[in-house]
Design a protein around this nucleic acid. Structure first.
Lengths: 212, 212, 212, 212
DNA sequence: CGCTAACCGAGACGGTACGTCAAGTCTTAAC
DNA sequence: GTTAAGACTTGACGTACCGTCTCGGTTAGCG
């Protein structure tokens, strides 16, 4: 595109090769040693890149890890599941016609993300970082918030369809939908299998639809 | 751990004063700067104690923090809420006659713990540590497991009372009871108010008792 | 060691100011408190330098001290006495035409080095270190070996000049030339005055039973 | 017996067994790891004795080591060579009628001491300690001074016998007799063999320029 | 074509905390 | 009241990364 907003007047172009190799090194080290043992210095060495190059493009470890987990190639048939981070488009993609179906689809996606070793390690590590350093909690909180908003959209749609009472406390309901996932991932220490998403969806649903 | 049960045959007695001051310094620093900024060295300095004295009694930061959070004086009317860590005795203390009452009581206790700044900081910090270093996850996982076992006892009692179907998937139910708490604490970053426990209890209960 | 001959291919330039201040701090502390009380940490603090900077350039206390003693400015008229460490060039510089003269010159140099407080402290400290930790004996043993080889050159020249018998046991003779110096320095605890070198030179040449 | 001269008024008796085992542990560790790696703590552990017991009887590491080296059983035919520390009695024992013989005998004794691993390690270690901490140099300096005084006695006897000129500088001569031994032991790092004592004795007597 | 950026690798630098070790002192219990 | 056990303060060790910085050298686009 001709309309380039960055006002550069010269200078060497960014080395895409170096960029990619940093992200790959991050993903590899994440799986091998975990988030805690991951150091910027180690990533630079593994990627055959200067430490300052890493710092130039990612201003903190959480941002680097988030970026690496987003760009990891997805094994499934979905070519770009991470484009679903926008609640609006995410809700558009997930539309089975019933709350039960929507929740099942949403949770399958969520549990599927946790099944990928890179993304699971990234999520747990970023969650940890968010506790330890509030200043670098943003990447993680944003990711989590997006999922919650998506759930709220699904619930609103169910209310509109009169599947659930208009008086439903949707905030509490969202807690119920998302809670078990994070509890299993962060507290129990074992990411739940993708298949367990269905059981949770059922348990949650009966709770929500109880008065119906 | 600080509790030494082996019968001594001589030697200088342990300095209880130093012990107490270490725990107090830990609690104070935890609240002031958070778990991430807490260092053994800083605790020792604040407590006017040698670093090696800290290492003698607590072999890692997680153990120290867990101990400090357990020994923090409880502000509430309950003189010793931490005695409820044993599922059996905990279940004995919490026995209102109905699942609804039991869950409300349990969640009030749980949310109450998170309302204490020291314990909230300790819990989130230990959760973070558990992600970063699997080797020091034990104190946190033990604490969490104890709560889960207590919930399972409450559920089993409800089954025995025929309040809920014998076929109830109690593991899923436990996830539902505990999930929202940890989700709010670790992911949303704001410990839920004690009063919200009731809303959660209600939402969960209707789900579980749906078939009834 | 601080002398790096490898041609650099990038990287921040070494801070000569910091370097110099480390060596000066080492020399000062050596004189003030002695080798035993000298710590890397103390040197760093005194030099206003990070501990890691010291460790980067000198991998052990003996190397640091040896370097500091070599770079200490010489008070005497000799502008660079340490250039005499090479036996060949040292022998070239010391060439009075007679063994008596050569030994007198050599011992004057040697005793002169011990008269400098920094170098005397360094020598005795390094000698001590060599006993305690064979692994870090190298700097000291190298220094001492160089002196011995120089003496052997002087003796060989005397043999060539037919000043002394060709059958002379030069190794024993070297022990005799160097022994008293080290004995006074390390065992008696008082470095011999420069002037005493002449008396030792005479005694060495003729032996105890000389007049007989 | 009723007439007890020791004025003790009660208390536990000193444990001779513990005493002996400390000295043995010291000697063993000295040989195994060297003086530098020897710690009071290590000795206490090896001797199955409390650290404070060691400190009660020996106020410093040098004193302990000196004591251990003195009490080490001598392998040779001489049942108590260490009784020769008194210059007077030492000189009485060494009296061959000629300076050459006396020196040969003295040096054989001296080199013999260095041939014993425990005593060699003790001597070099104590020499090191004397450099590092002037306050604990006493045991070593006393030992060395006693040898020097013995040499001076031998030389005085030679003067009296008119073997050497009355004007002989006996202090310089003593330096010549003792220097090579310490030089070999402390600087070269290899204790001279017992047999080399004879060569040194000869060289000392006649000097380098002897044959001329 | 040369100027001007911005990139990149290398690595020095001041920091901070780590967890370990031993020193030497002190307090208590056992004999 | 000596001996044993061991808690305690102190201080340095050597290591690992942090995030910043200053270089030399490269590689574009713009004028």
């Amino acid at each position: 595109m001709s309309t380039n907003s960055t006002p550069r007047t010269g200078g060497r172009l960014r080395n895409e090769e170096a960029h990619r190799s940093v992200l790959e090194a991050t993903a590899a080290l994440l799986v091998e040693n975990g988030y805690g043992a991951l150091t910027i210095e180690g990533v630079a060495k593994r990627a055959n890149v200067a430490k300052s190059t890493v710092y130039r493009w990612w201003k903190s470890k959480p941002e680097l890890v988030m970026d690496a987990s987003v760009h990891v190639p997805t094994p499934g048939p979905d070519p770009a599941p991470e484009t679903a981070v926008d609640p609006a488009s995410g809700a558009a993609e997930i539309d089975t016609g019933s709350l039960a179906g929507d929740l099942a689809a949403f949770l399958a996606d969520l549990y599927g993300a946790a099944a990928d070793p890179v993304r699971a390690r990234a999520l747990t590590g970023l969650a940890a970082e968010a506790q330890l350093d509030p200043g670098s909690a943003a990447p993680f909180r944003d990711w989590a918030r997006t999922r919650r908003e998506l759930v709220l959209v699904l619930l609103a749609r169910a209310v509109a369809r009169e599947e659930i009472p208009a008086a439903t406390d949707v905030e509490s309901a969202a807690d119920l939908v998302l809670g078990p996932f994070w509890y299993r991932l962060l507290v129990m220490g074992a990411p739940p299998a993708r298949a367990e998403g269905a059981a949770h969806a059922a348990a949650v649903l009966h709770g929500i639809a109880a008065g119906k």
